[in-house]
């Protein structure tokens, strides 16, 4: 069986497309980085691919708010294609800026089924609580109760990887939205405190409980990533694609890489 073709969407200012492509390749997929302009001209289509990844970066410089401009383009130009991807159950993953784009496009975090309308947005990613871009390693747990089917094989898994963002604080419109996210299993990843032992040990991982720096940006309920109702669309702020090889880890025992996430993604894309 040939490797699943994975579309990695590049808009001007995208910059972790190479990192994502490396992770997809290591996970057994066949990544293809395609600029939005080429998609728009129809030279390459979403339908040609078994999964879609929107990587990190600063699409259009994050002018007017992180991800806002690319979100608009997705809504204007690719609403139909994206909805077909989701209906077909193909996995869609947004990382960092890609997560911001999916949220702001309305593909993630909308409570109603009507997709891709800005009014539907009930959650957002906004300025970090400390008001600045920050780069540091964090620990994540894949939510045991996550609804996403393709995350199923890695439920409750620990991933260590860096965050690198200025607008990553997850906020819900109100308490009822937060409750709904939890009740429906839409929370996909939470920041964890990996403890103060000299060497990282999975057993000592516990909830970040909102405390900085384990929760690096002040996200509500330590939410680092979510999925949609269908379970096909997943987004997260941290960068699991930057921890897929052992030497990429600054310290600690082997393991807790982001590779299982990409393997699950590629497996679902087959």
């Amino acid at each position: 069986m040939s490797a699943a073709p994975i579309l990695i969407v590049h808009a001007s200012g995208t910059n972790r497309d190479g990192d994502a492509a490396q992770a997809i390749e290591l996970a057994g997929g066949s990544p293809r980085i395609v600029h939005v302009n080429q998609l728009r001209r129809g030279e390459v289509t979403f339908a040609d691919h078994a999964g879609v990844l929107i990587p990190g970066g600063f699409s259009y410089g994050d002018s007017l708010g992180a991800g806002q401009r690319l979100a608009l383009e997705l809504r204007l130009w690719f609403a139909q294609e994206l909805s077909e991807v989701v209906t077909a159950g193909k996995p869609v993953l947004g990382i960092c800026n890609g997560f911001q784009v999916l949220v702001k496009a309305g593909l993630l975090g909308a409570v109603s089924e009507h997709r891709l309308a800005p009014e539907n947005r009930q959650v957002t990613l906004t300025d970090n609580a400390r008001g600045r871009f920050e780069c540091r390693w964090v620990t994540l747990r894949v939510e045991p109760a996550v609804r996403s089917t393709w995350l199923g094989p890695i439920r409750d898994t620990i991933i260590r990887c860096p965050v690198a963002h200025g607008e990553g604080r997850f906020v819900s419109a109100d308490d009822s939205v937060s409750a709904e996210l939890e009740a429906q299993g839409l929370v996909a990843f939470r920041y964890q405190d990996s403890g103060a032992t000299p060497v990282f040990q999975p057993d000592s991982v516990r909830a970040a409980a909102g405390a900085y720096p384990a929760n690096p940006n002040g996200s509500a309920a330590d939410i680092a990533g979510i999925c949609d109702h269908s379970g096909a669309v997943v987004g997260l702020m941290p960068h699991p694609e930057d921890h897929v090889l052992d030497w990429q880890r600054p310290n600690g025992d082997p393991g807790a890489t982001g590779l299982p996430l990409f393997k699950a993604f590629v497996a679902a894309a087959r």
Partner: peptide
């Protein structure tokens, strides 16, 4: 230092 992304391009050893 933390205001700079020192991880992008997945190659910081």
């Amino acid at each position: 230092v933390r205001r700079y992304d020192h991880e992008v391009r997945a190659g910081t050893v």
